[in-house]
């Protein structure tokens, strides 16, 4: 079986549904119609653009271009992480911490996957490298932004408690230990839920795509399992790194709680 190509007409039918939804939300005064349509337009534009870029990268395989695209993806994900937080670290930390954590976890795990597990030749074959990295970034982005958001918000709300512990001679790490654990748990919850529900509640997107494209189901399943585990590891390690360094940053060299390092967005 081969993939049935979609025509522009097919896509406009799907788009019509979204427009219908927007009309309904105008009528209901939900105030999200503009957002909805704008996001829809962004989807079209961004995906078309990446489609064009992938097309040229696939036909002209060069490590430099692939690295450049990866960096752009990373920076966009870092911006997304920052903008999703209610309280974020001031200055470069706000952007840098999330981006660095994603870089450490997503890039290293994608490299391991390409070189050791999938073992594709050359290892940067864009048909594998780009989608893998994209899935890693998309998911670690969620975990890191959830964990970071929880950490900063809890520290903000529970400042008196943290300081009370400091007054009792606790170290900075002891004083924020339970908030840190809680934040890491929050960051990892979505991916744990996704693993638990995989195949029962939903068919994961990548597997669906491969089956639509004609892959044998068992091959698609194996790839999906691989991806799930990689994403879990990436999200977990990324969340650990960002919550650990993020919590350290809330204290100065004299272990004082410095919440003025946070800003409300």
């Amino acid at each position: 079986m081969n993939l049935i190509p979609l025509s522009a007409f097919d896509l406009s039918l799907a788009a019509a549904l979204v427009i219908l939804l927007a009309l309904l939300s105008v009528r209901m005064q939900l105030g999200i119609a503009r957002q909805l349509l704008f996001a829809g337009l962004r989807t079209v534009a961004q995906l078309m653009l990446i489609g064009l870029i992938l097309k040229s990268i696939f036909s002209y395989v060069h490590l430099g271009w692939i690295t450049l695209l990866s960096m752009v993806m990373l920076l966009m994900a870092g911006r997304e992480v920052m903008s999703r937080q209610k309280y974020r670290l001031r200055g470069w930390w706000g952007f840098g911490l999330g981006t660095l954590s994603m870089f450490i976890s997503s890039f290293s795990i994608t490299l391991i996957a390409l070189n050791v597990i999938v073992n594709v030749e050359p290892w940067y074959t864009p048909q594998y490298a780009i989608p893998l990295l994209g899935m890693m970034l998309g998911n670690t982005m969620n975990g890191i932004s959830l964990g970071q958001d929880r950490l900063n918000q809890s520290a903000w709300q529970q400042r008196s408690m943290i300081e009370a512990r400091l007054m009792l001679g606790w170290t900075w790490s002891q004083a924020i230990a339970d908030i840190r654990q809680d934040s890491i748990r929050t960051g990892m919850m979505p991916i744990i839920n996704a693993m638990a529900a995989a195949g029962i509640v939903s068919l994961p997107g990548m597997m669906t795509g491969q089956i639509l494209a004609g892959s044998p189901p068992m091959e698609a399943v194996k790839y999906q399992i691989l991806i799930m585990f990689l994403i879990t590891a990436g999200t977990g390690f990324g969340t650990f790194v960002s919550v650990w360094f993020g919590s350290r940053r809330l204290f100065d060299e004299r272990e004082r709680l410095r919440l003025e390092r946070l800003q409300a967005s």
Binding site: L166, G169, W170, E255
Partner: peptide
């Protein structure tokens, strides 16, 4: 270390 100082200089 700051935490050792605060153990000796308690704040209520």
């Amino acid at each position: 270390p700051a935490h050792a100082w605060r153990k000796k200089v308690a704040f209520l």
